[in-house]
C-alpha cells in the first residue's frame, strides 16, 4: 500500500503559544543588577595583642557618628557633603604640615624607586544608634575620597584614570604594575572601631 503523506500540522497557533510564554517571562523577569559597597572585615581577634603598635595622632583622621546622625570629623562638626573634601586633603597630605600625616619612603618599581607614601589611616566610629543610611553615606564618601585621589594620581602619572587601569590590568602586565603602584601610594585604610553604645538606641 502506498504510504500516505501525513497531514501537516497547522502551525498557525504557534505564534499564540509563543506569545503567551513571552508575556509570562516578560512579567517575571527582573533586570536589576545587584550593586553595593564592597568592604573587607578585619579578621576576628580572640586575645587582644599585648603590644599594639602606636599610631600617632597626626596620622589618624577621626570620623565619629553619633546616635543623632551628627558627624564629628577631626573634632569639628561636619556635613556629609564636606566629608569627601576633608578626607581627600588628608589622604593627599602635606609633608611640610605638622598636623598632617607623616611620610615614609617606599620602594615602588613602577614609579622608579623610592617614593614618599603617607602613613594616613581613616578611623570611623559609629554609635549603635546611628542610622544605617548615614553610615552608608559616610562609607561612600570615604571610599569616594580614596577613589578620587587615586584617580587624580593615575591621571597625572600614567595618563589613565583609575577605572581604565583596573580594566587594563586584567590583560596587561604593565597596567597591573601601574595599578599596584597607585594602590601602594594611596592604600585604602579605613579602620572601624568597635562600636560604642552611648545615647539612646
Amino acid at each position: 500500500m502506498a504510504r500516505r503523506n501525513a497531514p501537516e500540522i497547522n502551525a498557525g497557533s504557534m505564534a499564540d503559544i509563543a506569545f503567551l510564554l513571552l508575556i509570562f517571562f516578560l512579567v517575571t523577569t527582573t533586570m536589576d543588577v545587584d550593586t553595593g559597597l564592597t568592604r573587607k572585615l578585619p579578621p576576628p581577634i580572640d586575645v587582644p595583642p599585648e603590644d599594639v603598635p602606636e599610631v600617632k595622632q597626626r596620622n589618624v583622621f577621626v570620623v565619629l557618628a553619633n546616635a543623632n546622625d551628627d558627624l564629628l570629623v577631626e573634632g569639628e562638626p561636619t556635613l556629609v557633603s564636606d566629608l569627601r573634601r576633608k578626607a581627600k586633603d588628608f589622604i593627599i597630605g602635606d609633608a611640610n604640615n605638622e598636623n598632617m600625616p607623616e611620610f615614609t619612603n617606599k620602594n615602588i618599581p613602577a614609579l622608579g624607586g623610592m617614593y614618599p607614601v603617607s602613613k594616613q589611616i581613616i578611623s570611623l566610629q559609629n554609635d549603635r544608634g546611628t542610622s544605617y543610611d548615614l553610615y552608608i553615606k559616610v562609607q561612600n564618601e570615604l571610599v569616594g575620597a580614596y577613589n578620587d585621589v587615586r584617580n587624580e594620581f593615575a591621571m597625572r602619572k600614567f595618563g589613565k584614570s583609575y577605572k581604565e587601569l583596573e580594566e587594563l590590568a586584567k590583560t596587561s602586565e604593565g597596567a597591573e604594575q601601574q595599578l599596584d603602584a597607585v594602590k601602594d601610594v594611596y592604600p585604602q585604610r579605613i579602620s572601624e572601631a568597635e562600636p560604642k553604645n552611648i545615647g539612646d538606641q
Binding site: 550593586t35 553595593g36 564592597t38 568592604r39 573587607k40 572585615l41 578585619p42
Partner: peptide, 12 residues
C-alpha cells in the same frame, strides 16, 4: 567576623 566571612557587601 567570628565565622570568618570577611568579604562583605553593603547592598546599595
Amino acid at each position: 567576623r567570628k565565622a570568618n566571612a570577611l568579604k562583605i557587601n553593603y547592598s546599595t
